[in-house]
Design a protein around this nucleic acid. Sequence first.
DNA 1: CCACTTCTTGAACGCACTGTCAAGAAGTTG
DNA 2: CAACTTCTTGACAGTGCGTTCAAGAAGTGG
Lengths: 204, 204
Amino acid sequence: MPRTGRPRSFDDDQVIGGALEIFWRHGYAATSLRDLKGGIGVLPGSLYAAYGDKHAIFLRALGRYVDASREQADGIAAEGPVLPRVRELLLGVLEAARAEPGRGCMLGNTAAELLPRDEAAGRLVHDGFGALESGLERALDAARRSGEVRPDIDCGAQARLLLALMQGLHVVARAEADPRRLADAVDAALAPLTARPGSDHPDR
Amino acid sequence: MPRTGRPRSFDDDQVIGGALEIFWRHGYAATSLRDLKGGIGVLPGSLYAAYGDKHAIFLRALGRYVDASREQADGIAAEGPVLPRVRELLLGVLEAARAEPGRGCMLGNTAAELLPRDEAAGRLVHDGFGALESGLERALDAARRSGEVRPDIDCGAQARLLLALMQGLHVVARAEADPRRLADAVDAALAPLTARPGSDHPDR
DNA sequence: CCACTTCTTGAACGCACTGTCAAGAAGTTG
DNA sequence: CAACTTCTTGACAGTGCGTTCAAGAAGTGG
C-alpha cells in the first residue's frame, strides 16, 4: 500500500537559515510571519505544518546560531598563537557593526529582548554564552602554558571578562557613528594579558 | 475673559517615571498603551493629548533615564578614591541582575531593540553612553593624577573598556542563574589599573 | 453664577498580527 | 494508471494593537 506523500518543496536548512537571518536583524517580536514569508518564500501555513508555531521556528533558528557559536569558540581554542585571534574576534565585532549596523549578536539580542522570561530561549543563550566562555578559557589556558600570556593570569575570570566585553561592544557599537572608535578598548583589555618581554616563561 | 481650563489630574513626573519603569522592564514593542494605563492609571486618550503618541512617551521616559545616567556618571567622577566606586558600579550591575532579573540597562536595552533604526532614540542612547564614558574617563584621569592608577594608563581607552564591560555584564547576566559568578571578571578588569605598591607615584 | 476652556472617559476604528482550515496540487507506490 | 498520502495555497477568524473622537466632567476668571 502507498505510504509516502508529496515531498517538501523547501529545504529545511534554507528555511531555518533564512529565518535566523531575519530574526537576527529584527528581533523576535518585530518579526512577523509575513516577514519570514517575504524573506524565505514559504507561506505561514507550511511553516506551521512543518515546525509548529512562531516561537518554535525562532528556537530552531537560535539553536542554529548556538551551534555556529560553538564552532567559533572551538576555532578560538585551536592551535597557534591565541591573542591575535582573540583580538581579531573583538575587532571583528566592531567591523561587523560598521558594515552591517543593527545586527549585533543573536545571543545578546535574544538575552536583552526575551530573557529571563523565555526559559527555552534562555537555555539556548546560556549554552551559547557558555560555549564562548569555555572556548576563550581553553584558549587562554593554552596560551598561558605556551608562555603567550602571563603565568599569573586567572584564565576563567579573563574569559568571562572577554565574553562580557564582546557583548558590550555589540551593544555600545550600535550607538556609535563609527564603531572603530572603540578599538582601543580592545587593546586595553588585551594588553595586561601579554607576558613581559624579559619575563620568565616556563617552557620553550 | 476666562482663559484657563481644567487642570491635569496627573503629575508629569509620575507619569514619565511610571512609563520608564514599564518600558525598562518590557521594552518598547512589548509595552502596550494598556500596560501603561495599568501601571500608571492614566488612559491612552489623556496620554495622547498630553504627549503625542507612544513613541514620544518612550522618548520622554528614555530622556529621563539619560538624565539619571548623567548624574550617576558625575557621581563616579566625584572626589575621593575612584577604583572602589567603579568596582561598586560594576558589581552593582550584577547585584541588580540578581535582585531584579530582566531589567538590565535601559540604554543597552534600547540600543539592542531599536538602534540604529530609531534615530531619535539613537541620539539619546548616544548621549547616555557618552555621559557614562566621559564620567569614567574623568574619574580615571583624576585617579591617575592622584597616583591611584598607574601613570601609563590610557584613561580614554579604559573608560570605553569599562563602559562596554558594564553593558556586557547586563547582557550576559541575564542568562546566568547567579550573576555573581561574573564578579571575578570585574576584578580582572580593574586589577591592571592599580599602581604597583612599590611603583613611583608622582605626588603625595 | 455663568461663560469658557481644558481634561477625562470609554467606546470605536482601522489595521496588522498569529494561527487555522478546507480545497486543490503534487508526488509515490503497488 | 489509480489509489493514497502529504504538502501548498489563499482566504479567514480571532485577537490585540495604536490611535481617534465625541460627549461629559471639572475646573477658572469675570
